[in-house]
Structure formats: structure tokens, C-alpha cells
Write a protein that binds this DNA or RNA. Sequence first.
DNA 1: TGATACCCTACTGCGCAAGTAGGTATTCGA
DNA 2: TCGAATACCTACTTGCGCAGTAGGGTATCA
Lengths: 149, 149
Amino acid sequence: MMFSTKAEYGVRVMVELARRGGDQPIPLAEIAEREGLPLAYLEHLVARLRKADLIESRRGAHGGYLLARDADQITMAEVVEALEGSIAPIECISGGPDGSVVCARETDPEHVCTTKLLWTRVRFSIIRTLTETTLADLIPATRKQPAAA
Amino acid sequence: MMFSTKAEYGVRVMVELARRGGDQPIPLAEIAEREGLPLAYLEHLVARLRKADLIESRRGAHGGYLLARDADQITMAEVVEALEGSIAPIECISGGPDGSVVCARETDPEHVCTTKLLWTRVRFSIIRTLTETTLADLIPATRKQPAAA
DNA sequence: TGATACCCTACTGCGCAAGTAGGTATTCGA
DNA sequence: TCGAATACCTACTTGCGCAGTAGGGTATCA
């Protein structure tokens, strides 16, 4: 297993928010009950999603959460990264501020890290898949938009 | 982070075995020292690699380990799977004996798991990358085979 | 026969994921 | 204006698995 339940639960919350669109905020308790997940724990996760500007919140009675953008404008890479932190298949590999990939074991410029190529490839393919999939892709095609024409 | 050091260290061992080819078994202690990794811990990892028929061992003095096959006949999917166990991006997703993908949360046939599509895609892209990369791909092109002709 | 190596089982410490608990702040409806 | 409903925040707890250690046994070579 590679992603924690943070990603699993958090994605479920996002899907649920997207499934019921509209301007009405959806209380977290409803989602928790529907998905059978502990409310108190979900609160931690939505906090991350909110800080990443993926959802908005309305406090008070009749409050809740809604998507900050349209579902097709939210990539799963954003969602997963907000929940799990920077995506790296292995500890020593992480993405630099620019696009470069850094290997923690590669201190000595002489001694090139032979395994870096592998983990770079894996990382890239994960990120590509997560970026190519939007939240809208995960919503059952019940309505979503009546055929935009 | 998604893979543990088991994968990281284990891959390093495999690369090292591949880098020095030949019929001479290489003692694990040598690799441990060269890579700066704890020998006793590596012993656990090579046990997994051996059980997966990826390496062979010679006991006794002048013993050690060698690749069970040529490096270009060993995919990194085999290596990683031997070390980490079945590759699944998330706990509820796992590969069935056939090619099918099983979702543990999908007990009720009515209630389809909406997030399954995402994790299936991620899993597939990881496995494809690991399968397309062979151990030979990770060896610095110093010699490997004098231009096969 | 001793040194060298693989091989196996059991144990340990620790960090982190997963979840709990309890309080505070804000907003709505009556 | 009050109380219910909801988000929001911090601290705490628990269990598990990773990472590593320890210590023996077994095969092989010189």
C-alpha cells in the first residue's frame, strides 16, 4: 500500500461534494455518515483541502463545504498532494521548486545514484496519471451538465 | 513517500549485483559496505529476492549472491513486488489472481465505488512503468556487453 | 578444522497513521 | 436574543509496521 487513508477518504469527500453540485454547502456530517467514515477524522482532512483552496467552507447553521472550482478544473494531483503532501515514491526522491528531481543520497557528484532513474520514472508516471484525471472524471455520468448544448 | 526502504535498499542490491556481472558470487557484506547499509537488515531483503527466484546464493567461504537471470530479463516490477509485496496504491485496491481489480469497499453491488477508477489508473501506470524498466536499464553503460557484435 | 559466508527466528524501539476528545467561533432561524 | 447547527482548532491516545539488532545455526572452501 502506498497512499494512506488520508488520500482515500479525502478523495471520497471531494467526489461527494462534486456529485452534489449546487451552491448549497454540504455539512461534513452528512458525508461522513453516507461514506461510513469518522467525522472527527474527516475534519482533519477537509482542513487540508481548504488550505489548498480546493474547497470553501460556510460556518454556522446550514453551513458546510463546497468545491472552490468546477470539478473539471480540479486535478486529482492537486487533491492527493494536498492530502498526502508532496508526491514521491520514495523518501530520497523529491521534486525541487523547479521541475528538477533531487536525490538525497546523491551528495557526492562523483557517485551517481543509479536507482534515481527508476524512481524518477515511477514518480513521473504517477503524477501524470493524477494530473490527467480530474475530479469530474470520477463522477458517475448521471447529469453533471445536460450535454452542454 | 510510498515505497519503504525495503524497495530502495533492495533495488540497490540488485543494481550492484548486475553492475558486477560474472559468475563469481558477491558477498552481501561487500555490498552493504559499499552502499553504507546495515548488513543484518539487507539479509532480510535478499531472502525475499531469493524466494522470488531473482537471485541465487552460494553458501560457505567465497560465497555470496548472483543474479538468477540476465539483467535485461529482470523487470523492476518483479523486484519491487518481491520486496514490498503486491503493488497497490491504496489498501482497498488489489489485483485479483486474474487481471481484475478488486475494491474492498465495493461489497454492495448497488453502491459502486466511485474512486476505484482513479486508483485503478494509478496502479496501472505504476505497474506499467516498473514492468517496462528492466534491471539492465539501471546499469551505467560502462561495459555491460561490448556492443553485442 | 577454522574461517567465511549464507540462513533463520526472535526481539526491540520508534515514528506515524488513524482516530478521539473537547473546546471555541460563527451563523442561521425562530 | 437565544439556541441549535456547523465549522474550526489543539491536544491527546493507540496500534502497527518499518527499520534495525541479536544471536544462533548450517554449508563450503582452503
